[in-house]
Design a protein around this nucleic acid. Structure first.
Length: 302
DNA sequence: CGTTCATCCTGAGAGC
DNA sequence: TGCTCTCAGGATGAAC
C-alpha cells in the first residue's frame, strides 16, 4: 500500500498486533525480498531470532519495527511496500498467499506477520538506528528510537511534528522543476505519491507541470496544505484501495477511492466545473487533472 | 543542478 | 481462446 495514508494504516495495525511480541523465526523466501540487506537473507533471519518488537514507526512511505535482542542495541527491521507490498497478520494455519516472501513467527505461537508482494518492488532489511536528522531539538522526539540509517535522506512527512511547511515551500521555490516532480521528491517532503499529488494539485487548481519557481509562495503553501489535508482525509477512511492489493494487516480495504476527484477519473466530469478530467504522461507515469481548473503553464519547457 | 529513461516484477484489461 | 500491448499506489541509478 504505497502512499502515506496506506502505510500509516499498516503501521497502526503493527502497533496493535505485533509490538511487544518476541520473534522466534524469520523465514525469507528467495533472495530478492531481502536484496537491500547487504549480508543476505540468512544473516537477516539469524539476527532477528529472539528479538523483541519495541515499536512500529514510520516516516513517509518507509515503515520499520524497532527490534532488540536482550542486552543489545535496538535495530530497525525496515519494510518498504513498494507498489504492491502487504504486511498481513495471519494465523499460523492460514493458507499461504501466492506471493508470500517473508514469514515472522512469534514466541507466543500467535498470529504470524507475513510479507506478501506481487511485484516484489518492496522488501525488508535490517538497519542501524541513528538520531533523527530532522529532530526539532526540543522536547520528546516522535521517533524515540531514532530513524534507520537508510532513511536518513527521507524528509519528514506532512503529518509529523518535524514537518516545516514554510521551509519546504522555500526549498521548492528554489527549484527549476515541475511542481509535481518536487512533490514526489521524498528528500524534500515524504509520503506523497502519484495519487495524492494529483489530488492536492486539483484542489489547489495548479497544473502538475507548472514550474515551482513560477509559483508564488502562497500558492505553493496551498498545494502543500492540500496534500496534507487529502492524506489526512484518506487516512480517516482507511486509505485508498482499488483492488485486493491494498489492504490493512487484517486484509481489509480502505474507502477513499470513492472520494478521489482526479486520480483515475479520466474522462469523468470535474467536480468543480464539469470539464472532463484529462490524463497525461509525466515522469514515466500518469498525471490526472482538470484542463480548465488547472491551466497548463504558458511557457512550455524545452 | 536538472531531466529522461530503463529496470526491477506480476497481473489485469483492452483490442485484435 | 490466445496473442500483444499498455498500464499500475515506487525507488534507484545511469546517461545526458
Amino acid at each position: 500500500m504505497p502512499e502515506l495514508p496506506e502505510v500509516e494504516v499498516v503501521r497502526r495495525g503493527l502497533a496493535q498486533h505485533v509490538v511487544g511480541r518476541t520473534i522466534t523465526t524469520a523465514r525469507l523466501t528467495g533472495v530478492r525480498v531481502a536484496r537491500r540487506h547487504d549480508a543476505g537473507p540468512d544473516d537477516l533471519s539469524a539476527r532477528l531470532e529472539g528479538s523483541v518488537v519495541e515499536a512500529a514507526d514510520r516516516r513517509g512511505k518507509y515503515l520499520w519495527l524497532a527490534v532488540r535482542r536482550p542486552g543489545a542495541d535496538a535495530h530497525a527491521l525496515v519494510v518498504h511496500l513498494g507498489m504492491s507490498g502487504q504486511l498481513l497478520v495471519q494465523e499460523p494455519a492460514a493458507p499461504r498467499e501466492k506471493h508470500l516472501h517473508a514469514t515472522f513467527e512469534f514466541a507466543d505461537a500467535g498470529p504470524q506477520l507475513r510479507f506478501v508482494d506481487q511485484r516484489t518492488f518492496g522488501g525488508v532489511y535490517l538497519a542501524a538506528l541513528v538520531p533523527d536528522p530532522y529532530a526539532a531539538g526540543t522536547g520528546a522526539s516522535e521517533h524515540p528510537h531514532g530513524v534507520p540509517e537508510s532513511v536518513r535522506h527521507i524528509a519528514p512527512d506532512p503529518l509529523e511534528a518535524a514537518y516545516d511547511l514554510g521551509a519546504v515551500s522555500r526549498r521548492m521555490r528554489a527549484r527549476q522543476s515541475a511542481v509535481k516532480r518536487a512533490m514526489l521528491d521524498q528528500a524534500l517532503v515524504s509520503g506523497i505519491g502519484n495519487i495524492y499529488a494529483d489530488e492536492a494539485l486539483w484542489r489547489a487548481g495548479v497544473h502538475p507541470e507548472r514550474l515551482c519557481a513560477a509559483l508564488t509562495k502562497p500558492t505553493l503553501g496551498r498545494v502543500l496544505h492540500h496534500a496534507a489535508d487529502v492524506m489526512r482525509e484518506a487516512l480517516d477512511r482507511g486509505g485508498t484501495s482499488f483492488d485486493a492489493l491494498y489492504v490493512d494487516v487484517n486484509g481489509a480495504s480502505g474507502y477513499f477511492a470513492r472520494s478521489l476527484d482526479t486520480y483515475g477519473q479520466t474522462g469523468r466530469p470535474c467536480g468543480r466545473c464539469g470539464t472532463p478530467i484529462r490524463r497525461a504522461a509525466f515522469m514515466n507515469r500518469s498525471s490526472h487533472f482538470c484542463p480548465r481548473c488547472q491551466p497548463r503553464p504558458r511557457i512550455r519547457r524545452a
